[in-house]
Design a protein around this nucleic acid. Structure first.
Length: 866
RNA sequence: GGGCGCGUAGCUCAGCUGGCUAGAGCGCUUCCCUUACAAGGAAGAUGUCGGGGGUUCGAGUCCCUCCGCGCCCACCA
């Protein structure tokens, strides 16, 4: 407890209280508490590759208000912090920051130092190729720097995180848990390895999961090609015209497809067509996904042009003719022959010489160049109708990628999804805040196509605890994995040796080879509840905090993080990983566009804003948006928040400065009772909405009450409070009780200023003090008093009119009113009588008379100015 | 194409299960150094509650429809 400062200020509060909270362990998790006494939060581990922006501050502040509320409600809050330093994003950023490129074939160089920027701060244009261990080292260095930045940011914002409970998604605990989850699913056949068409980013040369896709509108063109129809029977006789945007995939064509009800093509089903240039016979098949109104109504199926091709290929049991390599270029060596050499040979042509000549023009080219080349060939051969017709169409990209995705075949690890209905049913036990966000979860479950590919052909991430045997001829058997045992975890197969082998057998005939890939970052993030609560690492802790109470997160990652976490817990624990999902919106600029650095509309960094408006001011702005709502970037609101904090300082100084009431004093006066009863209602509402995760409304209601409290109540009672006797004590008791309550109601939002004021006159931290109880306020007010509410209303209105008289007369508020005549209904006049002395005092009225009338009016005679 | 959300004063938003003359703050106008606060205070002006129907004694609040904005999803030859 300290004294009340003469000149209260917000300056320096952040540094002061951060240090004290840290030193006193205000937010430290007390692990003597049991699960029912604990409120646990599955904090989103921020991706440390991203640049810090104000959007982070908003959503994390929301979670913090809930954490602080629950703590004051008596819960022991488990509020850890993780760092997502795993995955492609980090890797890309490290490539950019250090001008390096990972080349796994290179040996480790212990003396490597990354390229240094020149005098203009620029890095060399051509990246230096380095080994995988060197690259991982660089990643770890960059990640540590960014974690420090985030820690500083969160700490300034005032997140009540327990900094002893931190984890990283690449650290040994996370790796072990992630790998263990994988091994358990592998045992049950839920994780499996399979060769399948895979969405592939040709730039990064890695597989990409469905959840990471986005559509982009890009220019393309229809090309109308003619296929031969040896038997005739088509609408155009012995040829059939198809439209395609991917003519370069003609050598990969495996069938033509039309809708089963399409009368134009029904005669062709079961017959064969011959591809132009390549002379390959392909079946003409029917499938309901073919759209009669698109192009000519009959399409070529290639392996693979888009995801529809994959569906057709799978459902119609077609052969595969892969032509695009993993680097996005056409295969160099393909040869067509007149007859099949052996069963299943797909490179058979009616005119192999022509086919091989045509393909020679494509071999080794990028998809883009190959398209130009094949158009020339088709036009020269008279197999194309006119020129390409430009269109704009949506194409799938990796959400962070630069080039359209290709679909290539490759061996990958998958996790089998349960049926959508099963996941949706499981999620019924999860409360969404706001509830309407559930549809995004369910839409995603219902739209799933195929299983979850968790393999990434990258270097920085959690590796698979897997090796593959090499036979005596040196061939790796990728479909017979050697699995690590759980006691070996975490495993890096490139440096560790599988059971029963020794290092000398690595990459040798009869030996073993490491799985070269790493896991999808979401495969690890999806176990954040288990990682934070240290599943099977610290069973005592796990018991106390798992499953979690709250998963806070942004709506954009419902399909990734939320979905995969629910699926993992469903499979591994047969339960939900948390009970509530608090979904936050975005920070948007005034044009409603998502705020981001890349669009150049994020002008001020978060540290500058925190410096300028204070953490409390920024938090006030952040809490202007309820769950799921977007929030406009608005420095004006931060300014208001700062002003509110200053007002709290001054109002508190005043209320406390009047002095303490006599021991045993009670609240007797109508205005005091009414104020406390109103406050009790406020407590009820704030509690109710907080329980429903509507922190924004709790703040708004509290703020509204507070301004009325300072503008009217304080003005009305200040004269009486300065006096002595029971009436003065009534005011003092009520003021102190109200102040204590309001500070607590504000504490989750404005942790610094409320703690500062609390420290003037109370022991301990406000953030560990109990949340106010409405009934206690009602008792202090002496029980219900319906009339008091009217007294409060009428007194406030009359005071306002008295002030208006002075304002209209352009005189100081200190000017005396010689006489004031209040006209109103008898009932309201009676109510006013209970506060007559307070109104007279606050309005500086010499003589107050009343007259009955229909509605409120006030006539005044002012004293002479001067 | 399907779905979700939003559209209330110049700006940012309240308005819960329909009910007395539609609210707050910012901004704006006028005024006030009043001993909690001039990084303040008082007072004031400003709204066809997106448009059109409907239910109802009564609708910003419920139903239908249209328009605009945002987001999510989509099998995109």
């Amino acid at each position: 407890m300290s004294s009340i400062p003469d000149k209260p200020t917000l300056d320096g509060l952040e540094a002061k209280w951060r240090a004290i909270w840290d030193e006193q362990g205000t937010y430290r998790f007390d692990r003597s508490k049991t699960r029912d006494e604990v409120y646990s939060i599955d904090t989103p581990p921020p991706t440390v590759s991203g640049s810090l922006h104000i959007g982070h501050v908003m959503s994390y502040t929301h979670t913090d208000t809930v954490a602080r509320y629950q703590r004051m409600q008596g819960k022991e809050v488990f509020y850890p912090m993780g760092w997502d330093d795993n995955g492609l994003n980090v890797e890309r950023r490290v490539q950019l920051l250090t001008a390096t490129l990972c080349d796994p074939s290179l040996p480790y160089d212990p003396d490597f130092t990354p390229p240094q920027p020149d005098e203009k701060g620029r890095l060399p244009k051509d990246p230096v190729r380095i080994s995988r261990p060197n690259f991982v080292e660089l990643c770890e260095e960059v990640v540590v720097q960014m974690e420090e930045e985030y820690h500083e940011l969160w700490s300034t914002v005032g997140l009540s995180v327990d900094w002893d409970q931190t984890y990283t998604t690449i650290g040994p605990v996370a790796s072990r848990i992630s790998q263990k989850g994988f091994l358990r699913l592998l045992e049950r056949g839920i994780a499996y390895r399979s060769g399948a068409p895979t969405l592939w980013d040709v730039d990064m040369q890695t597989a990409v999961a469905q959840a990471e896709l986005e559509d982009r509108e890009v220019p393309g063109a229809y090309h109308k090609l003619s296929f031969g129809l040896p038997g005739g029977g088509g609408p155009d006789g012995d040829v059939v015209w198809i439209d395609t945007t991917r003519p370069e995939l003609l050598p990969a064509c495996v069938a033509l497809v039309a809708h089963p009800d399409d009368e134009r093509y029904q005669p062709l089903f079961g017959h064969r067509a011959v591809t132009p240039l390549f002379g390959v016979e392909v079946p003409i098949v029917a499938h309901e996904l073919a759209q009669p109104d698109k192009g000519t109504g009959i399409a070529m199926i290639c392996t693979f042009g888009d995801t529809t091709d994959v569906i057709w290929w799978r459902e119609l049991g077609l052969p595969i003719r892969p032509v695009v390599r993993h680097d996005g270029r056409f295969e160099r060596e393909l040869a067509w022959t007149a007859t099949a050499d052996h069963d299943g040979d797909v490179w058979v042509s009616t005119d192999p010489d022509a086919a091989n000549a045509a393909y020679a023009e494509l071999a080794g080219k990028t998809v883009f160049s190959a398209q130009k080349a094949i158009v020339e060939l088709l036009q020269a051969a008279g197999r194309m109708d006119g020129d390409p017709r430009p269109i704009t169409h949506p194409v799938k990209f990796w959400e962070n990628g630069k080039k359209p995705l290709e679909i290539v075949t490759s061996n990958q690890w998958f996790i089998r999804y349960p049926p959508a209905s099963e996941i949706i049913e499981r999620a019924k036990g999860l409360e969404f805040h706001p509830e309407y966000m559930r549809v995004r979860f369910e839409d995603w479950a219902n739209g799933l196509q195929g299983d979850w590919n968790i393999t990434r052909q990258r270097f920085f991430g959690v590796p698979f605890p897997i090796w593959y045997p090499i036979d005596d001829e040196g061939l790796v058997d990728y479909l017979s994995p050697i699995v690590a045992t759980e006691d070996m975890l975490p495993v890096d197969p490139t440096t560790m040796v599988p059971p029963g082998y020794d290092e000398s057998q690595r990459n040798q005939p009869g030996g073993f080879a490491a799985d070269p890939d790493v896991m999808d970052t979401w495969n690890t993030s999806s176990m954040s509840p288990q990682i934070a609560s240290k599943w099977e690492e610290d069973p005592d802790l796990f018991e106390r905090v798992y499953p979690m109470d709250l998963r806070p997160q942004a709506h954009e990652i419902i399909r990734t993080w939320l979905f995969s976490t629910v699926v993992k817990a469903h499979e591994l624990f047969d339960d939900l990983p948390f009970r509530h999902a608090g979904i936050s919106g975005f920070v948007v600029d005034p044009d409603r566009k998502k705020l981001s650095k890349s669009k150049g509309n994020a002008q001020q960094g978060p540290f500058e804003l925190l410096e300028q408006y204070g953490a409390d001011g920024v938090r006030y702005w952040a809490c202007g948006a309820g769950p799921g709502r977007d929030l406009a970037m608005d420095e004006g609101q931060m300014k208001i928040g700062r002003r509110l904090a200053i007002k709290l300082l001054n109002a508190s100084k005043f209320a406390l400065g009047i002095g303490e009431p006599a021991a045993g004093a009670t609240v007797t006066e109508a205005l005091d009772r009414a104020m406390l009863l109103g406050l009790a209602d406020l407590v009820d509402e704030a509690t109710r909405v907080f329980d429903g995760y509507d922190y924004a409304r709790a703040l708004e209601r509290t703020e509204t009450f507070f301004w009325t409290f300072t503008d009217d109540h304080l003005e009305l009672v200040k004269g009486r409070a300065y006096g002595s006797g029971a009436e003065a004590d009534s005011a003092k008791v009520a003021l102190r009780l109200a102040l204590q309550t309001l500070l607590k109601l504000f504490a989750p939002f404005l942790p610094y200023v409320t703690e500062e004021v609390w420290s003037w006159w109370q022991e301990g931290s406000i953030h560990r003090s109990p949340w106010p109880v409405a009934e206690e306020l009602r008792e202090a007010a002496g029980g219900p008093d319906d009339g008091a509410a009217l007294t409060r209303t009428v007194a406030g209105e009359v005071l306002s009119l008295l002030r208006k008289a002075k304002s209209d007369a352009k005189v100081s508020m200190r000017t005396e009113i010689m006489s004031a005549t209040v006209t109103d209904t008898p009932e309201r006049l009676a109510a006013l009588e209970r506060a007559r002395a307070d109104v007279v005092d606050a309005g500086r009225v010499v003589e107050l008379v009343t007259a009955e009338g229909d509605n409120l009016s006030v006539e005044t005679r002012l004293a002479e100015a001067g």
